[in-house]
Design a protein around this nucleic acid. Structure first.
Lengths: 284, 284
DNA sequence: AGGCCTCTGAAACAATATTTTCAAAATTTG
DNA sequence: CAAATTTTGAAAATATTGTTTCAGAGGCCT
């Protein structure tokens, strides 16, 4: 890799003129942000004239000031950008452009941004709600997200009692709404292609004072209006579809958090479950 | 301290329009360096017009783009001069020990290690098999992995024809084995708690010269003996359960790869699907 | 399906930024 | 100390960026 701008400046410091050295000092001080202004302000800051800036840039080997500034920005980007997120090949054996690496980049980026947006207090509040065994929990997903709803259901069901997975068929939903009591929880998955039926369901549930927990994308499903808790998850992927990886991540983290809160209950349920599985084995 | 630009963006994300959201994503991605260009290049990067950039800047409360850019530069300066690695936590707002951060660490580690172990050629070979439309594809999961099987099924089904999801109930599996022809594919999910029924299914299928693609954990399910292709995925999590996040990642990457291989077919199927959905909407 | 409204980008315009020119100031050299 | 040389900044010229206007596109609602 070629030299950084600061290297070049130090290299050529002794062939710089007085005005140029003033500039060099300003640039190196608070490097490289100080170079991210306009040529005019930089000149003012160094108490020299704008032409001096141009001359120096050219003397350092750039075609002009913007060229130098770009170099600075690129350096900055390389320094700043999250070392975990970028320019780190995931599959060493595959080229950067292989779908595995591109997908990994996208997913990490989704994860980082989704977590950035999520106040941990919200997360904690939702895990507390789900850990409150007095509240029944209903879970529902759409066409694509049904599998996620199913996954959450399977796990929560082990943790505690009173978990219901609503069927894919929306015709039956009103029957379930009938059972919902104030304070119960309804977990809704609604991503992209927001589904009209889900809005109706949310409205009906809300009228019964059910608290709604919504998992949606960065744009936000219209169900958000009725929801008391919302997870906005970035779902971009190098593909014709969206990625559910981060959503699944949230579900697992949430499950783990709930598990911690009610470990006593969960532990005994898991033991019981083990016993039941064992009996089935013998039975066969 | 007052809000950062990224805070403001997230705050107002839901009142932003489509073009503005595109911009917001570009800005938040590689923040804040991505905002240090000219309005023109930023607009190009986000694939919107320069006026949209101005409008967004004003919507966020700045007098114009330069004002926003100054704010970004000031933040950058503050960040840079305070080099306490801000970026090694996933959720900045939560402590290191918060489950969100611990889970993120675990998942990234799983992803790294799983990709390390996976020769990309194997991945490519499997994607080629799944893209071969002459081969029927059968998918089956266990108690926990059923949701993953379901997810793969839903996606592959859009990509191409002849995809079958075996039911959870193993009693019916022999009926499906009856239909399998030599060269067909059987995708099996078998993680931890390896399920005896799945081994029997794999053996039966193998006798019919069905090629088996196995998704399993780092230890490897006994189904591996019958499988011609195997994905060993690291599934550790700070919880009583295993994490399926990386498995889902592999499924999505695989789906994307298959999609690329048979884009012609997939595209027309997706169009047709759109049309069907539209008709259903009218129908209601 | 049609009317309303919001959103968007092309183009014109305005404001800055960058570069060039050139003469004066500073520095060097004999 | 003066002539030659270099360096410098004011001002003009040029290039680019940022803003506004406005007509048409696109979404949403009834």
């Amino acid at each position: 890799m070629s030299d950084t701008v600061s290297d070049i400046i130090r290299d050529k410091f002794n062939v710089l003129t007085r005005a140029e050295r003033k500039l060099a000092n300003v640039l190196l001080d608070n490097y490289p942000v100080s170079g991210m202004t306009s040529i005019t302000r930089l000149a003012e800051l160094a108490e020299v004239s704008p032409p001096s800036v141009v001359r120096m840039a050219q003397k350092l080997g750039f075609t002009g000031f913007p060229d130098l500034q770009n170099a600075l920005r690129d350096e900055l980007e390389a320094t700043i950008s999250n070392p975990i997120a970028k320019h780190d090949r995931w599959s060493q054996q595959a080229p950067d452009t292989h779908i595995l690496n591109r997908f990994a980049d996208a997913v990490i980026d989704n994860l980082r941004q989704s977590l950035d947006q999520l106040p941990p207090e919200d997360f904690d509040r939702v895990s507390a709600l789900l850990a409150d065994r007095k509240r029944a929990v209903y879970i529902v997903g759409g066409r694509i997200t049904h599998a996620l709803a199913d996954y959450l259901f399977t796990h929560l069901q082990v943790l505690r009692e009173n978990i219901t997975l609503l069927p894919a068929n929306s015709n039956i939903w009103p029957h379930h709404v009938l059972n919902m009591k104030p304070g119960d929880l309804l977990v809704i998955f609604d991503i992209r292609r927001y589904e009209r039926d889900l809005i109706n369901l949310a409205d009906m549930a809300k009228e019964q004072d059910v608290e709604i927990i919504l998992f949606t994308d960065q744009w936000g499903s219209p169900v958000g209006k009725a929801a008391s808790h919302r997870f906005n998850i970035k779902i971009e992927a190098p593909s014709a579809w969206d990625s559910s990886v981060v959503t699944l991540f949230m579900l697992e983290a949430l499950t783990a958090a709930v598990e911690t809160r009610i470990w006593g209950v969960t532990k005994s349920r898991m033991k019981q479950l083990e016993a039941l599985f064992d009996r089935r084995k013998l039975f066969r």
